[in-house]
Amino acid sequence: MNFKCAGRDQFQPRSGGGQAGAGVHAEHSTDPIPLRRPQTSVGTIMIRFVGLLLAATVVLVLIWNR
């Protein structure tokens, strides 16, 4: 741990020399927090899996028959 200011509960930066409030966002957005996208259904995952499996099989058959 870094205890630069012993005797204080929290470290408070010295004033002056820098911009006051740098890094603090004064503006507040009232937009709602975006929700996560709904999960992909099992059927969609199976269709993708079978499609990729068939594509890989076709590629391997074409390579084998060369």
Rank of each mutant, 00 (worst) to 15 (best):
Q39C: 03
F3R: 00
V59F: 15
I45Y: 12
P13L: 01
F49H: 02
P38K: 07
G43S: 07
T57Q: 14
T40P: 00
R37P: 11
W64L: 11
R8Y: 00
L60G: 12
V24H: 04
F11Y: 14
Q19T: 03
I47E: 03
G51Q: 02
L54M: 15
G43Q: 04
F3I: 00
I63H: 08
S41Y: 06
H28E: 13
P32W: 03
Q19N: 10
Q12S: 04
E27T: 14
N65Q: 10
T44A: 14
T44V: 11
V50Y: 06
R66T: 06
A55M: 13
V24F: 12
T30S: 09
I63N: 06
G21E: 05
L60W: 08
Q39V: 09
L35T: 03
I45G: 02
A26Q: 09
A26V: 10
I47Q: 09
R37E: 07
K4Y: 11
G51E: 01
L62I: 12
H25G: 04
D31I: 08
A56L: 14
R48C: 02
Q39P: 06
G7Q: 01
L53M: 14
V61C: 15
R66L: 06
N65F: 12
S15Q: 12
R66V: 06
A6P: 06
D9F: 03
I45W: 10
V42K: 07
A26R: 14
P32R: 06
T44P: 00
E27R: 14
V50E: 07
I33W: 12
R48G: 02
W64H: 09
V59I: 15
M1N: 05
V24W: 08
R14C: 00
R37T: 08
G21I: 11
V42D: 11
G51I: 10
L35D: 01
K4W: 05
A26S: 11
A6E: 01
G21V: 07
G7T: 02
H25E: 13
P13E: 03
T44Y: 05
M1C: 08
S15N: 05
L54T: 11
G18F: 02
G43Y: 00
P13Y: 05
G21F: 14
R36A: 12
L35W: 00
R37I: 04
L35I: 01
V59T: 13
V50R: 03
R36H: 08
L52F: 14
V59E: 05
R66Q: 10
I63F: 15
I47G: 04
D31A: 15
L52Y: 14
F49S: 01
P38G: 10
A6V: 01
F11C: 04
P38L: 10
L62T: 12
R36V: 07
Q10N: 05
E27K: 13
A56I: 12
I63W: 13
G43K: 01
G16E: 08
V58W: 13
L52Q: 09
L35G: 07
E27D: 14
A22Q: 10
F11W: 15
